[in-house]
Design a protein around this nucleic acid. Structure first.
Length: 474
RNA sequence: GGGCCGUUAGCUCAACCGGCAGAGCAGGGCACUCUUAAUGCCAAGGCUGGAGGUUCGAUUCCUCCACGGCCUACCA
């Protein structure tokens, strides 16, 4: 280890502990979470954690010790500890991890405190923690050195513990409904299930390129063919695209499929799932997100995609000239877009999406932008599909799954004619699977990171991902 | 990829029109046995993100580079 790492004479402290015959990096220590301790607790209790502050008073000192459950004040007193242990205490620093044994008491100011009778050093800090009062604010360091963020910023600790609780609640909810949690490949020979640029990697022994998956969809539906009726996967997908407050190159998606169901069932399920998470974890139907308050009270709004355009005077959304007219009437830049769907998408993003604060289902989409969805009964130009918007963000996407192999193949062929940056290859293996018969099914995808953003009031996806993608320093 | 903003001590922040780079906390020393942003005293801490340029003189003005943030774009 280099000299400059051993800051501020802490190297000498390491030497001091060694000179006392004590290994400054300790071993197993049996302890209780500090938050579980109450004043009526009698006898010796053991706790362990990081020393966050030291207030020295000559022959005594108060410290705050933090473990994952919370903080507790501890009191070191020379006449209680004796010469040897008090000398050891003097060689403790803010940031050290220690195991402490003692008795609980309440101070004159009414604070629960552990009177330390014995302690061991479990890990010596040889750097300096960020400042105790302002914490760690530099966002770059917070992302790069998340461990410091977690030590110094309780709000950050809170967001990630909520993320875990949300995921557990989702899993419990689905497991109770009989869904199987499955794991499908993350390395795909042909990327599919979404429209996105993939990451490419290479397998040496097979001498072949593989793609990090952009969605698990096509594999999960192969499981429906195989007779698994309710499956879900919560894991990473990867998209080789720009980074923003809403996009991280690797992100977590929930995808689930229910045989013999449809998009309506998925709409009910989405409502039930998110309502359940709110009830169990937040005990509230309202969440503050930025400047707005989101009301999750049932039932959620439903708007037909086709009806979105009527407020702009667009009666026929295939009328490209009319759409362009609207852009010019609204003084909205078309940004060089010519394609009808791209223009509508842009109009939606600029004018409609920001207003969708309370949960809103957008229903029934054109087939052209929904290559894996089952057509609308009696209208083959539209499909049974919805998207869910909350807080102005797209959070979920679901549809009745297309299970007709012939139509699916035709849709894939049409897709190839589009301007996709994906490899121009059809997943014939998937078509073959459909040819063996896939039950009709409802499928649902939920962007977990975005859902966690909304539920925790985080305005950047980087605040809900422990280690977001960053360029390496220097 | 484009635009704007930022980068000063371990951390949080100052430094007027270009004139010796400053504080709090942390760290070091001393004192102090109920403090909680403990307190008091002493000492230390810097290649101002990097490289050039303008200038007698650059943290400050200019150019390029690196990293980050926000917006935008690609995209759900």
């Amino acid at each position: 280890m280099s000299e400059d790492v051993l800051k501020n004479d802490k190297k000498n402290k390491i030497e001091w502990w060694k000179s006392q015959g004590i290994e400054p990096y300790g071993r197993k220590f049996t302890r209780e979470p500090v938050a579980s301790l109450t004043p009526d607790r009698k006898g010796i209790v053991s706790i362990a954690g990081r020393i966050m502050t030291i207030r020295r008073h000559g022959k005594a000192a108060f410290c705050d010790v933090m473990d994952q459950s919370g903080k507790i004040q501890v009191y070191f007193k020379k006449d209680i500890l004796g010469e040897i242990l008090f000398e050891r205490f003097k060689n403790l620093d803010v940031g050290d991890i220690a195991g402490l044994k003692g008795e609980l008491f309440v101070t004159h100011t009414g604070q629960l405190t552990l009177l330390v009778k014995d302690f061991v050093l479990l890990s010596k800090i040889i750097r300096t923690l960020p400042e105790k009062w302002h914490g760690l604010k530099d966002v770059e360091i917070r992302y790069r050195k998340r461990y410091l963020d977690l030590i110094m910023n309780p709000e950050s600790q809170k967001v990630f513990s909520l993320r875990i609780k949300i995921l557990n609640a989702i899993r419990n909810f689905l497991n109770n409904l009989g869904y199987f949690e499955v794991e499908t490949p993350m390395m795909h020979p042909i990327p599919g299930g979404a429209e996105a640029r993939p990451f490419i990697t290479h397998h040496n022994a097979l001498d072949m390129d593989l793609y990090l998956r952009i969605a698990p969809e096509l594999y999960l539906k192969r499981l429906l063919v195989g007779g698994m009726e309710k499956v879900y996967e919560i894991n990473r997908s990867f998209r080789n695209e720009g980074i923003s407050t809403l996009h991280n190159p690797e992100f977590t998606m929930l995808e689930l499929y229910s045989a013999y169901g449809d998009y309506q069932e998925m709409m009910d399920l989405t409502q039930d799932l998110i309502s359940c998470v709110l009830r169990e974890i937040f005990d509230s139907q309202e969440i503050d997100f930025g400047d707005t308050r989101i009301n999750f009270g049932l039932p959620w709004k439903k708007i037909y995609w086709e009806d979105c355009w009527k407020r702009f005077g667009i009666e026929n959304w295939r009328d490209k000239n009319k759409i362009k007219q609207v852009f010019s009437d609204l003084h909205l830049d078309t940004e060089g877009k010519e394609d009808t769907f791209e223009l509508l998408d842009l109009l939606f993003k600029r004018k409609i999406e920001p207003e969708l604060i309370d949960p809103t289902f957008i229903i029934k989409f054109p087939v052209e932008i929904s290559p894996l969805s089952k057509s609308w009964p009696g209208d083959p130009s539209m499909v049974e599909r919805f998207e869910l918007y909350v807080g102005g963000l797209e959070v979920a996407n679901a549809y009745s799954e297309l299970n007709d192999p012939i139509e699916q193949n035709e849709r894939f062929i049409k897709e190839l004619e589009g301007p996709s940056e994906r490899p121009k290859v059809i997943d014939q293996d998937y078509i073959e699977a459909l040819e063996y018969g896939m039950p009709p099914a409802g499928g649902l995808g939920i962007g977990i990171d975005r859902l966690v953003m909304i539920l925790t009031g985080s305005l950047s996806i980087r605040d809900v991902i422990l280690f977001p993608v960053l360029r390496p320093k220097q």
